[in-house]
Amino acid sequence: MPVRRGHVAPQNTFLDTIIRKFEGQSRKFIIANARVENCAVIYCNDGFCELCGYSRAEVMQRPCTCDFLHGPRTQRRAAAQIAQALLGAEERKVEIAFYRKDGSCFLCLVDVVPVKNEDGAVIMFILNFEVVMEKDMVGSPAHDTNHRGPPTSWLAPGRAKTFRLKLPALLALTARESSVRSGGAGGAGAPGAVVVDVDLTPAAPSSESLALDEVTAMDNHVAGLGPAEERRALVGPGSPPRSAPGQLPSPRAHSLNPDASGSSCSLARTRSRESCASVRRASSADDIEAMRAGVLPPPPRHASTGAMHPLRSGLLNSTSDSDLVRYRTISKIPQITLNFVDLKGDPFLASPTSDREIIAPKIKERTHNVTEKVTQVLSLGADVLPEYKLQAPRIHRWTILHYSPFKAVWDWLILLLVIYTAVFTPYSAAFLLKETEEGPPATECGYACQPLAVVDLIVDIMFIVDILINFRTTYVNANEEVVSHPGRIAVHYFKGWFLIDMVAAIPFDLLI
């Protein structure tokens, strides 16, 4: 008679799926529990143990900040960024110097990925580790590398530091407007667009060049630039800015003055950032001319202004700041037409079709709590990747769950009947059967004279019903998954307890 339990259901295979997918890609990662103190490590794979030199037993239950890997060259700011990422709910990448158990130093890129439950609360953290440099290539500990984003994938490793954006290309926007319009339909740009040429040739750093990471940081200074100062900065030398009595002219307006920039070969870094931020506020060169004239017309309804409409929906549905990093990277690809469009465009503009998908598509409701890094690593669709929660398995109709209350009560009843059979069957065979043979035949009273025979008949009927119930009862397979398919249940029961239950259900007393 089957006594099969499996009270692990309803099970959740999400954690096993993450481990299996990460292991298949030869990654070095740990999984931490966000619900406990210090976000203790609950799993670390073999790749991480080989990377740091510690065994799994030495890593388990330690804080996922990996303070046991810190050393003299470990930056405090990087460690603080990892700790801050564990307090938030967004994906974050941090470069930090770690030390192995043998004392060797290596520069590592740590990717902190939160995993949320159905309520939107962070319950786990996945920390992925990628070695960037070994100890002989690690720089000085005073050099802070965590304020910069990861290198873009479309640049060669040897040319990542030679990417320079020439400031004269930004200063000569109005001069290039006529050349853009003359391109017409034969050019790649839309009317009114501004073409910015980027020099990728390796050259020595000069005062006129600005690194790509500095251009990325310009967006942080746009908020500090007032509207009046932006307007004066875009007017140009024809209309000098008016300053109040006793007030000095704005240095932001002076930063885009061609006369002032041409007199000296070098520009201050602050002026460069502010000038680029001011130019980015204009949607095209037409807006710059309109600002000089004193009238700013409404933005025209053409394809170039609607190019950012799908980007707005993608940004609203993005799951991490990696989408913004990807957008900034692609927006700086050289030799393309940049349409400086305000994100607050007309909502009635139709979304044009684009061959290049900048932001990841909208994630469906079932995966809105899973970050983009987890979705990318697992390579699963929205119909396959579940949320991290207890999910009731989908069972067929008329199927009994093996952990249901009805099955528990039924098993206790069958257990009592088995005990009765084990006690009274030998007793009936030894004593009652002998008395029946010696006594007179009682054929007239039937079952009324033999109450134990009636009980034995009921017990046999219950055993037959138990066999039928076992054909529709779920079970737990070797992978700790609840199986509810009727065919698989029948095959599993035939290979197991079916023969024993059938022999126990045969009414031998009635056959004798």
Rank of each mutant, 00 (worst) to 15 (best):
Lys332His: 10
Cys265Tyr: 14
Ser182Asp: 05
Gly158Val: 15
Leu225Cys: 09
Asp136Met: 15
Ala253Val: 14
Pro310His: 15
Gln335Tyr: 04
Asp144Tyr: 06
Gln81Ser: 14
Arg252Tyr: 04
Ala85Cys: 04
Ala32Asn: 01
Asp342Cys: 01
Thr353Trp: 05
Tyr327Gly: 14
Gly186Met: 05
Leu155Trp: 15
Arg27Pro: 03
Glu365Lys: 14
Leu385Met: 14
Ala203His: 15
Lys332Gln: 12
Met137Trp: 14
Thr329Ile: 06
Ser264Gly: 14
Val131Trp: 07
Arg292Met: 15
Ala32Trp: 01
Ser182Lys: 09
Gly187His: 06
Val122His: 06
Ile336Met: 12
Thr13Val: 14
Thr371Tyr: 08
Ser261Gln: 06
Gly262Trp: 13
Ser263Pro: 11
Ile336Pro: 11
Arg269Ile: 14
Cys66Tyr: 01
Gly306Val: 07
Ile18Ala: 05
Thr201Ser: 15
Leu87Gly: 12
Glu208Val: 06
Met308Cys: 11
Ala79Asp: 01
Phe106Lys: 01
Val222Gly: 08
Asp144Val: 09
Pro240Tyr: 15
Ala40Val: 11
Pro114Trp: 01
His7Ile: 08
Asn45Met: 01
Ser104Trp: 01
Val131Arg: 07
Asn117Glu: 07
Ala382Tyr: 04
Gln376Ser: 09
Asn220Cys: 08
Arg273Tyr: 12
Ala142Thr: 13
Val41Lys: 01
Val279Leu: 11
Ala85Ser: 11
Cys44Leu: 01
Val94Asn: 01
Asn128Leu: 11
Ala268His: 07
Cys44Thr: 06
Val180Glu: 05
Val325Trp: 10
Val295Gln: 15
Gly71Glu: 01
Ser243His: 15
Glu177Phe: 05
Gly236Cys: 04
Thr174Pro: 15
Arg273Asn: 07
Ile42Tyr: 01
Gly103Met: 06
Ile330Lys: 13
Val132Gly: 15
Ile96Ala: 05
Leu107Met: 07
Asn128His: 09
Ser206Phe: 06
Leu316Arg: 05
Glu95Met: 13
Ile123Phe: 06
Ala78Gln: 05
Ala57Val: 15
Leu107Gln: 06
Phe22Val: 07
Ala156Pro: 11
Tyr43Ala: 01
Leu267Met: 07
Phe125Val: 06
Lys362Glu: 10
Thr13Cys: 13
Gly381Val: 08
Pro352His: 02
Gln75Asp: 15
Ala253Thr: 07
Leu378Met: 09
Asp321Trp: 13
Val8Gly: 14
Arg356Phe: 12
Gln335Ser: 08
Pro240Glu: 12
Arg4Glu: 13
His147Asp: 05
Lys166Val: 01
Leu127Val: 09
Arg356Cys: 12
Pro227Asn: 11
Ile363Tyr: 15
Ser313Gln: 11
Ser209Asp: 10
Gly71Cys: 01
Leu324Ala: 14
Val131Gln: 15
Glu90Asp: 13
Val94Thr: 14
Ala223Tyr: 03
Lys332Leu: 01
Lys116Val: 13
Ala203Met: 14
Phe48Asp: 01
Asn257Gly: 12
His143Ala: 09
Arg20Cys: 07
Leu200Ser: 14
Met133Leu: 13
Ala121Lys: 14
Asp16Ile: 11
Arg92Asp: 08
Pro245Ser: 15
Arg73Gly: 11
Thr337Lys: 14
Pro258Cys: 10
Val325Tyr: 08
Ile333Ser: 11
Ser318Asn: 12
Gln25Arg: 11
Glu274Gln: 12
Ala307Gln: 11
Ala303Trp: 14
Arg56Pro: 09
Lys166Met: 05
His147Leu: 11
Arg181Gly: 06
Gly345Thr: 14
Ser283Ile: 05
Phe163Ile: 06
Phe68Val: 01
Tyr43Asp: 01
Thr174Arg: 14
Gly236Ser: 08
Glu289Thr: 08
Glu95Ile: 04
Ala188Pro: 07
Met291Pro: 11
Asp355His: 14
Phe163Trp: 08
Gln376Asp: 03
Ala203Val: 06
Ala293Arg: 10
Tyr43Met: 01
Gln247Arg: 06
Leu165Phe: 14
Leu296Gly: 12
Arg252Trp: 05
Arg100Thr: 05
Asn117Ile: 12
Ile18Cys: 06
Ala217Lys: 14
Ser275Cys: 12
Ile363Ala: 09
Ile333Tyr: 09
Leu315Ala: 15
Thr74Phe: 01
Ala40Met: 15
Gly246Leu: 15
Ala360Leu: 12
Ala80Gly: 10
Asp102Pro: 01
Gly294Asn: 15
Ile31Ala: 01
Met133Trp: 15
Ala282Trp: 13
Gly71Met: 01
Glu289Met: 14
Val122Ala: 14
His309Leu: 07
Leu15Ser: 02
Asn45Trp: 01
Ser26Asn: 10
Gln61Thr: 09
Ser239Asp: 14
Phe48Gln: 01
Val377Pro: 04
Phe106Thr: 01
Arg100Trp: 01
Ile31Arg: 01
Val8Thr: 15
Tyr43Phe: 13
Met133Thr: 14
His309Asp: 14
Ala190Cys: 06
Asp323Phe: 03
Ala204His: 01
Arg281Leu: 07
Ile358Trp: 13
Tyr327Leu: 12
Asp119Leu: 10
Val3His: 15
Val198Arg: 02
Ser263Gln: 13
Ser283Gln: 11
His7Pro: 14
Arg176Pro: 15
Ile363Ser: 08
Trp154Ile: 08
Tyr54Ala: 01
Val138Gly: 13
Ile18Asp: 01
Glu357Asn: 15
Ala188Leu: 06
Ser207Thr: 12
Pro361Ala: 05
Ala282Val: 05
Thr152Gln: 12
Phe348His: 15
Lys364Gly: 14
Gly149Glu: 10
Val325Asn: 09
Asp286Leu: 09
Arg159Gly: 10
Pro251His: 15
Ser140Phe: 13
Ser322Asp: 14
Ser318Gly: 11
Arg76Asp: 15
Pro361Gln: 12
Arg35Cys: 06
Ala382Asp: 11
Ile82Gly: 01
Asn339Phe: 01
Val325Cys: 08
Gly103Glu: 14
Ser331Asp: 15
Asp286Cys: 14
Glu372Trp: 07
Gly158Arg: 07
Thr201Cys: 08
Gly345Pro: 08
Asp199Ser: 01
Cys49Gly: 04
Val122Phe: 03
Ala89Pro: 08
Asp197Cys: 01
Ser278Pro: 14
Ile82Trp: 01
Pro386Leu: 01
Ser264Cys: 11
Ile18Thr: 06
Leu86Gln: 01
Val370Met: 14
Thr319Pro: 14
Arg269Asp: 07
His7Lys: 06
Ala204Met: 04
Ala79Cys: 08
Ser318Cys: 12
Pro63Phe: 01
Gly103Pro: 01
Pro237Ala: 14
Pro258Val: 09
Gly120Leu: 14
Ser55Tyr: 01
